[in-house]
Design a protein around this nucleic acid. Sequence first.
DNA 1: TTACGTGCAAAGGCTTTGCAGTCGG
DNA 2: CCGACTGCAAAGCCTTTGCACGTAA
Lengths: 163, 163
Amino acid sequence: MPLPSSDEAGTLLERFRRHLRERRLPVTRQRMAVAEEVFRSGDHPSVEDLEHRVRASGAQVGTATLYRTLEVLVQSGLVREHDFGEGFKRYEPMTASPAHDHLICERCGRVDEFANDRLERLLRLTADEHRFRYRRHRVDVHGVCTACRGRDLEPLGAGANLR
Amino acid sequence: MPLPSSDEAGTLLERFRRHLRERRLPVTRQRMAVAEEVFRSGDHPSVEDLEHRVRASGAQVGTATLYRTLEVLVQSGLVREHDFGEGFKRYEPMTASPAHDHLICERCGRVDEFANDRLERLLRLTADEHRFRYRRHRVDVHGVCTACRGRDLEPLGAGANLR
DNA sequence: TTACGTGCAAAGGCTTTGCAGTCGG
DNA sequence: CCGACTGCAAAGCCTTTGCACGTAA
């Protein structure tokens, strides 16, 4: 949720560059432009979001390259890929904040993060009980954020568009 | 996980018929054929799975109708829609077993179910703390089931295809 | 130099939609 | 009879891929 400090973004960018060098992969203008924009994000941008941001930053990057670069970023472990069930993916830089899960607002799409050790322990235990070797989990809590909840109570057409 | 008894399936089918009648929606051959097949499932079939099963049962149902019927079934509350991040959706009848989450095997796709009150309480509490009005959650635990784990230890090419 | 990256446009996988014909109530 | 449904094929949306050209090392 907090915007990564430009320091954090810089470090990640540096780590990405190292990652590429280590496997003798070219460090291209496009890859750096995409990485920079992802690392700069404080939210969970979609490919479309990133496409706009990268272009706004003045860089010239094709859609296919954007997808291909995101794949490399995810494999490098510096970026996390999410699927909140919206029909497209979202991406998040692996900044300081360690493992966490998400709260998603049903109305406005706002995403909050939370971390809870008990939750993870609970899930590991559950996997054990079912004789699964635990690998990872995905926890999304869907609800309505304060801002959107507030909107229900407003004068005009209150409660009309509850659905 | 357990196959619904034909009783449960029958009840759900009856409930679906009532649901349709209540909103003056036609009870068609196709809708019943699809519903029957979904309610009969003990697993979490995809649209493709259902298409095969419905055809195997002798019914004639177009793909578009299958999708449209699933939508009605989900809205009726008698069927649950899942997205395990595979690029397509899966469906599950709301049989006796109440709220539960899923354990998915990374290797073979097997899906186990589990229920845990503490988990739900934990997530509701988390929503509260973030001032979100809790609506629902989605918890998927990914791991490797016993059968697939066993395969790692087998003589031939052991550990080769770990990836 | 040379392997890998890039851009474009075409193709893919899943799902939705437009429309003419059909059918349940 | 009428409104809703059905099937087909076309279109949509996000993502991947083939290919000719470009570029980092």
